[in-house]
Amino acid sequence: MMKKTFVAVMTVALFLIATPLTYGLSEAFKDSVYNPGQLKPIDSQLKVKVGEPAPDFTLPSLSGEKITLSSFRDNKNVVLSFVPAAWTPVCSDQWPGYNIVKDIFDQNDAVLLGITVDNIPTLYSWVREMGQLWFPVLSDFWPHGAVADAYGLLRSDGVTERALLFIDKKGILRHAHVSDINVRPPMQVIVTELEKMNQTP
């Protein structure tokens, strides 16, 4: 009995050690990033299904231009990167990485659209801190998180999940990767899914 308890307790302890509670935050953000601590990994239910059309939307972007998902139909594969909120640790440590892989998107005839529920002025300041991004950043601020909600990615506290959605040239959802909000999704997901989408149009 004691042995079983010992094993159980040590398993819990080892799990705590092995669980990544950290992130490699860049010095670029210094102390301007708010740390919300550990959050419930996933707090919503997907409303979209792989193999079905992705809900269309039009959202304002940071450049002032309005972006419509269906405008890429028959022309480009689309990756939507939903991140929970501006000025939070993992999000600030995600898009700057995408900023150096434009060639991977180009090779797979794809565009990347970044989306958060923040308003444009907040996104403006945050993106400036990251430097110039090559991809459009869209604001799903008003009606609050309506696009995120249509996809089933709006959490109960009004921010979104950390999710990557892969939509092909026909507007069909090919893959949805909803990660633990506390963890950055691996780049491998993007590379693998882009190649799959590009190889089987």
């Binding site: 490699g24 935050l25 860049s26 010095e27």
Partner: peptide, 12 residues
Amino acid sequence: QIFSMYCPHCQA
């Protein structure tokens, strides 16, 4: 050097 490909200052 402790770096990350996601870190803008490391890139610069």
